[in-house]
Write a protein that binds this DNA or RNA. Sequence first.
RNA 1: GCGGAUAUGGUGGAAUUGGCAGACACGCCAGAUUUAGGUUCUGGUGGGAAACCGUGCAGGUUCAAAUCCUGUUAUCCGCACCA
Length: 804
Amino acid sequence: MEKYEPKRIEPRWQKKWEETGAFHAVNGSDKPKFFAMIEFPYPSGQGLHVGHPRSYTALDIVARKRRMQGYNVLYPIGWDAFGLPTENFAIKNHVHPAIVTQKNIAHFKAQLQSLGFSFDWSREINTTDPEYYKWTQWIFLQLFKKGLAYKSQTTVNWCTSCKCVLANEEVVNGKCERCGSDVVQREKSQWMLKITAYADRLIDDLDLVDYPERVKTQQRNWIGRSHGAEVDFPTTAGDKLTVYTTRPDTLYGVTYMVMSPEHPYLKKWVDKIENLDEVRAYQEEAAKKSDLERTADNSKEKTGVRLQGVTAINPVNGKEIPIFISDYVLISYGTGAIMAVPAHDTRDWAFAKKFGLPIIEVVKGGNVEEEAFTDCATGVMVNSGILDGLSVEDAKVRIKEYLTEKGIGRDKVNFKLRDWVFSRQRYWGEPIPIVHCDKCGYVALPESELPLRLPEVESYETTDSGESPLANMLEWRNTTCPCCGGPALRETDTMPQWAGSSWYFLRYTDPHNNEALASPEALSYWMPVDWYNGGMEHTTLHLLYSRFWHKFLYDIGVVPTPEPYAKRTSHGMILGSNHEKMSKSRGNVVNPDAIVDEYGADTMRLYEMFIGDFEKAAPWSDEGIKGCRRFVDRFYNLQNILQEGDVRPQLETLLHQTIKKVGDDIETLKYNTAIAAMMTLMNAIYDTGAITREEMKVFTLLLCPFAPHVCEEVWEKNHLGEGLCSLAAWPVYDEAKCQEAMVEIVVQVNGKLRGRMKVSADITKDEALEAAKKEEKVAAEINGKTIVKEIYVPKKLVNIVVKK
RNA sequence: GCGGAUAUGGUGGAAUUGGCAGACACGCCAGAUUUAGGUUCUGGUGGGAAACCGUGCAGGUUCAAAUCCUGUUAUCCGCACCA
């Protein structure tokens, strides 16, 4: 038998699979469907990272197993190809981003195909293809028509290097998530998407889906729903200052109020405020600070200025209290003003100590002179008029009733989630299909004019004024108003990269449809995605955005399910061999091409699955991969000891146990132990010196989803079955045959191991104990002592507890 | 500061959910094959001379704890003045 040579075997089978359309999904099949999906990659210039195949192999294994189990499987792939790195490369090298994208995709595609994934390449999609972004634009128009896309003058996060607006989610520690440059606040008119309208459902519908608990928690925390009340405080300026609080029960403990430096009332009160200079100085100071500085100051001392000339009245007890401005109160949350209860809030406590303000205890249980008492579970209300003696929870209910009754407050639910800033001042994104007419305002482009294509431009640089490169394209920009026919200007901002990835799973179901983003039949057959795997880094943003769009499409009757993904899992990162994140600067990057070249795709796939717990980060090991290559070699060499025959009795139990274990482990992402089980089986086979045809057949089928090329080769050469191994039936185990007739039982005395015995699996407790006491070491230990207790765990152990 | 996770041999990691700790690999050691290196094959490999001791650390519950409880330390990730 010739040597195992992956370079000869692998391209041959990849070609055969592609030529026969072996992995093409069928629309309108009467088989049960299974839609497996991985996050489609951004085709970067660097090519594939070894992290990509970890996720792709994992779901490839699931997809391949489902096909073998008789499902009509959709396992698609595409390109999330808009984005900044491509645009920056284009600017630097004076090439069109579309050309760069095309090149990168070709490279990525060749790399992915060399790994033998069972993607349905006939459904490949690309977010930068006008036939695709036509529908991204179409969805935007539907959002616009329903009032969920709107233009708004707001302070936005502005990246000083990208010259571009960022969503809140893209700002990390006051720096741009992509380039790491400083982010400053700027006033700009921006397209916004009203994701906040879906905040409740985005939380509540997490109950409908199978996501890891930590992912659900992350989504909930990001949306940040809190239940509380709004309370109106009359002021000496003659108006009312409204605050939001989650602790209306502590209303009697309010000793001052704090407004954000950006609060609009400060303008209204200019004539009343006596220390205006001081206030203005503080406002300027706060405005100068970037988010990063403001965050860094978080741990430092609180600052603020007391307003002279305006005070507030506590509506529940009529007490006059001072008003401060301080940057620890954010204009973007609640009402931009708070009631301060220093006794029961750590921030208010710190502020009160600094400014020498009174601290009034209204919940008994702590020492408010030492620190704020914030526990809601144990306290009892004091100094609180009508609330005295109540628990915190009861007091919350009672005070809300009281506020409503008196008309001085109301129930209120608040969210941390902000509306989604949707414009980017960039070239390489979907043009926003809106024109602005002086007479008619913002007008939607007629759907018949979609796709609105990106025009060819001279330069992709953003303008110095911070406008999109499209702003200089007057020929493109000048148009007529679809509404009145008068002169109008096109919107020159483009959509963020998140847009194309917010609905791509829908397109896979019907990727060449020109009439709709996908036909209703295709959507109702394939949706939802049955299993979606991706990285933890996308569990807040991408998941949230795509769930939002999907819910919107559900509401307007385009999609049949309220949630896009039935099940979501996450893979861990592959680290460099020094346990650090792979990066060029650390010099620990592993190139997948080199691994395929040296060991073959099957070995690469097996190693990435064997490397450790799928959901945890794992370091790459150049030594470890050799073990997987050895395993493939040894599998191939089984052909040397192949003989005719059925499953032999001495291997039957182990074989059935392995079928069970491999099948179960694939379902729970425990690929490492599935492979270990196959290694164990192989070791046992080699111990017998031979393998029978039937054993070989089962082994090849089990291994096929993991190492498909070598399995096809062995399958064909030895005529183990009809057609492709990849499409043959998945082996079925017999539960009865998984049970061993004889088992080894451990014998303990006082919990310490004293012997082992081989016994029949269905032995009774009495029989087991009797046998145990005959064991030499056991007899010695219990001799002359009183037996206090006897424990028998069937098929596992006997424990005899003795006393002197 | 808050929230989440993790901690097991020289290394990556197993342990059917409270029941033989270290499966399966890597590495290492010894031997065989080979002109040599590599490959391949066989055996060994937590510590300790032994009684025994061993799952970050200190307690506890239990006949029995890597697994449950209390406290504690370290590392990683997420959020970060959200009233």
